[in-house]
Amino acid sequence: MGHQASIGSAPAHVAHPANDRHEVPRLERTVTLLMLGRLRHRGSDTICRIRNVSAGGMRIDTGSPLEKGDRVAIEARSGVCIDGQVAWTNQLAAGIAFTRNVDHQEMLSPPVGPSGKRLAARSPRFHATARARLQTAGEASTLRLVDISLGGCRVESDQGFPLGADGSLTIPGLPPLACTSRWATGNRAGLIFHVRPDFGSFARWLEAPDLRFAAA
């Protein structure tokens, strides 16, 4: 594996055993601060922050600690999942060694649409079925989540959705989220959050099936 994988550097103050120090060669890295990705592990998916990436691996931040040796898959902007293994951890930071070298520049690029043009990059969306409550102008309604990201969510309801309506969305396990309805079709609507939820809290919520899939 040593000649195939490279990972994001561990913090300088973290000591590694001497026999591990040269296990993974350092290849040229592309530093990518705060890029959001999808982390698949332990039969579920959650959000992660990609700190840097090379052809052989990357450094990520997570909401809950990973364990050295964990098998994972990372999906960045391109939508392609890359398999890897946790090579080191430091609290909520982890170095991931890919199982094969990748074109890391392509991995970080937005996906290509049907027209051949790059699509706009957006936060990864996560399937969810939790119930939510939307309060708008003195009226409350019960919603069902369809999917959610750090920037907003898609919901469905038996009632209509007024476009551009501001409100407060309450999802069990997350703080109230001020939002605006951006689009509505039939019984579904897209809500945009005015302020993103805290990254760590959101990541841990995604890892809690009793909250995320409460209404399933």
Rank of each mutant, 00 (worst) to 15 (best):
A5S: 15
A178I: 02
H127D: 13
G173V: 02
R40W: 02
A178M: 11
H104F: 14
R125H: 12
D147Q: 02
C179D: 06
A130Y: 01
A97P: 13
R196W: 05
E139N: 06
G186W: 10
R100S: 14
E75F: 01
V146S: 01
R100D: 09
P172K: 06
A140I: 08
C153N: 04
A121Q: 08
S168R: 14
S115W: 05
A130W: 02
T62F: 07
P197Q: 09
N187V: 02
G173R: 07
S109I: 05
R133K: 09
P114V: 11
E106C: 00
R51M: 15
V146E: 06
V112N: 02
L27W: 14
V24W: 12
F98Q: 03
I47K: 13
W205C: 10
V146I: 04
V112A: 07
H41D: 03
Q85K: 12
A208F: 01
D61E: 15
G160N: 09
V102K: 03
M1W: 01
G167I: 06
V102G: 00
R38M: 14
A73V: 01
H127P: 04
V195E: 14
G138C: 08
R154W: 01
F161Q: 08
P209I: 14
S78A: 14
D103N: 13
S109P: 00
S123I: 04
I50Q: 11
R29D: 01
V80D: 00
R26K: 10
W183R: 14
R122F: 02
R26W: 00
R196F: 09
A15W: 03
P197N: 09
E139K: 11
F213K: 01
R188E: 13
S141T: 15
W205Y: 15
S64K: 15
L211R: 14
F199H: 09
L169R: 06
G164W: 04
F199W: 09
K117W: 05
A189V: 14
R125S: 10
R144C: 04
A18H: 01
V155Y: 05
P110I: 04
D166H: 14
T136L: 04
R125T: 09
S109M: 15
V14E: 09
S78M: 06
L34E: 13
T99L: 14
A15T: 10
E207V: 01
G138A: 06
D147W: 00
R131F: 00
S9H: 09
S44T: 11
S115R: 13
C179N: 06
G116I: 03
G43T: 12
R125L: 10
I148Y: 03
I47D: 03
P11F: 10
E207M: 15
G164T: 02
S149K: 07
A15G: 03
S54W: 02
G79W: 07
S157A: 10
L92K: 11
D210Y: 08
G84T: 09
V31F: 14
F199I: 11
A87G: 08
W88L: 07
V146N: 02
R122H: 13
L92G: 05
R26V: 07
P162L: 04
L36T: 13
A137V: 02
Q4A: 12
L36W: 04
L150A: 03
L92M: 14
I96H: 03
N101C: 01
P25Q: 06
S168I: 15
T136S: 12
N90F: 04
A140P: 00
